[in-house]
Every structure is written in C-alpha cells, then in structure tokens.
Amino acid sequence: MIVLDGVGMTYRAASGEVEALRSISFRVEGGELVALVGPSGCGKSTLLRIIAGLRPATTGRVAVDGRAVGGPIPAVGMVFQAPVLLKWRRVVENVLLAAELAGLDPGQFRARAHEFLRLVGLGDFADKLPRELSGGMQQRAALCRALLLDPPLLLMDEPFGALDAMTRDELNLELLRVWGEGSRTRKTIVFVTHSIPEAVFLADRVVVLTPRPGRVAAIVPVPLPRPRTVETRASPDFGALALQIHQRLAGAA
C-alpha cells in the first residue's frame, strides 16, 4: 500500500523556483492498478520518482507498506517511456541485468527470464541484440526486466507512450495478463500516462492531475469488469468514463 500525504515538490531552475507538485494526497491499495493522468509537464513522472524514492519530495510524506520513503525503495520494478536496454547485451542478458544490479546470482534467474520472454512473445528473440527488435518488442523486454525479481510494486512511467496505437493496445492487454488479472497475487501498479483511454482500460482508479503545479483534480473509480478485453473499449461505460475524465482534465486546465 502506498500513502501520499500532502506531497509537494519545488525545484530550482535557471528562471527561479518552479513548483512542480502541490499537496498531493491519495493512497494506492495493495494489488491495485492506479493510473496517473495529466497534461504533459504536470509532474506526474516526478511524482512516480518520488514514490520510488529516486527524488525527494519538498513537502509532505510518502510511505510504502507502512515505511516512510527516504531513499530508493527496495522491491520495486520500474518501466520508463524508453526501453533503456543496454545495446551491447543480448535481450535475455538485459532482462538478467535486474538480478546483477541487485547483487543476485543471474544464473538462478535465467530460466525465469526465458519464461517471461516467452510470456510476452519474445521467446525466439532472447539471443538477439536490442537493435534487432522493434520498439514494441524492446519495451516488452524492459517489462520482463522489471518483473524478473517479482517485485510486489511496479512503477510505470508512460511505458507505451512512444509506441503506435496498435502496439500500445496489444501491450495493454499483455500487461493485464502479466499482472494476473483475476488472480489473488496481483502486483500493485502505478501507471503514468497521458492517454485517457489507456488509463481507463487498465486502471482500477484514475488519479487526474492538473497542469503545473500538479494537484489532484479528481480520483475516478473505474468499475469496468475484469478481465478486460478488446470489447471493453467498445462498451458505453468505457466511453462514459473516458468522457468524465476528459471533462475533469478540461475543467482543471
């Protein structure tokens, strides 16, 4: 469970102090998938890094599983907008990087790395170099790297934002499958996106942020049934929710 309590963030830029986030409070329950939506520059990526303990908040408190965040938190998987794979390593070695950086024996994770790669359709590409893969495939590999150590918390920063619409829809479905929709051992996921349909399709709740300084404009529950499928996007409820979030965003601007 993640608790944010009055989180604010001000940073120093050449033009003076910039307030990026202002008194953000919400919580993410264990096993919940929460999407953060907001216009670009609203500080949603910064907020994700504050949760991960990669950047300090200027004001307020963040706690993950009851412990205050003071530095990089353990047992978290991160996926960024760019796949950031090491271009000199084969795909499976890139996935195993997670174990190596964490100081674990990568040999013990090799079987699991291959299993994850098969799960996302990269079974035949384990021994390729990243440049031999398409953007969508590279991002799948990055997802496998984030999942390798089976972290209970996954932080995703516009992970599919750079992909074409079809690949993005495909990867949304894959993410939900990997997440274990319907199972009891779901991971907690915080998913930053600027796509409203993506947020609605994935999330249990959508946190809508205002333009800078980012504040919580609304928290919209998404009661669409799971598992969500291709048909979900065509349902009237889906459209209504998307419209509601759109209006919140417009109202906040």
Partner: peptide, 20 residues
C-alpha cells in the same frame, strides 16, 4: 533512466560503472 535503474536495484557505484 539507466542510472535510476541502478539506484532502484540498489547497485553500488562500482557495479554501475563496470556493467553500464
């Protein structure tokens, strides 16, 4: 982001140096 990744996994400086 690669450096963030190193910090997320708690990798010491020398390890990020050698591996990345």
């Amino acid at each position: 982001e690669l450096l963030d990744l190193g910090r997320v996994f708690g990798a010491p400086k020398w390890k990020v140096f050698v591996k990345i």
